[in-house]
């Protein structure tokens, strides 16, 4: 059997053809966020191995992670988490609960609830800096 490493019209064009509909956009986003989260779990597991090197090594590392830049990155990480989680539930409903009949309504819920949870998480994570920002008004 002859293998073709690349489709005749090119890899990129084939991939761009997928994105025609809201459902396909959701599918592509699910893959990208999934690959991102998988990469993150590797980094996460590696970073926490410093626990075995004693208190000093671990606390030094945590000092870096508990900085504003990393908190913003953590918040952005949550956007991957929340999208992949909510769309994952949508996929299970589509596959196991006749969700194909109403998957676009579910998608609207995914995006709507996702944005609300993302902003809510931002307020939760940055409640102290936000409070400090408006402290002079009190």
């Amino acid at each position: 059997m002859a293998y073709q490493a690349k489709p005749p019209e090119g890899w990129l064009r084939t991939n761009l053809k997928y994105t025609k509909d809201r459902g396909s956009v959701a599918w592509v986003l699910h893959r990208i966020t999934g690959l991102g989260l998988t990469a993150y779990i590797y980094v996460h597991i590696y970073a926490l191995t410093s626990l075995t090197q004693g208190p000093q090594a671990f606390d030094n590392e945590m000092k870096l992670f508990q900085t504003p830049v990393f908190h913003v990155l953590e918040w952005l990480l949550f956007s991957l988490v929340v999208y992949h989680s909510l769309n994952g539930v949508r996929i299970v409903i589509v596959d196991w609960a006749n969700g194909a009949a109403y998957h676009k309504k579910l998608l609207a819920v995914v995006y709507g609830l996702g944005v609300v949870l993302f902003i809510g998480m931002g307020i939760l994570m940055f409640r102290e800096p936000i409070a400090n920002m408006f402290a002079s008004l009190r």
Binding site: P55, D59, F65, Q66, S85, L124
Partner: peptide, 21 residues
Amino acid sequence: FVVVLTHFFVMHANPASGHTY
């Protein structure tokens, strides 16, 4: 869905839960 969201809310969203050794 349960494990990750719990982990995120307890650990990442809440510095007060303690990140010291």
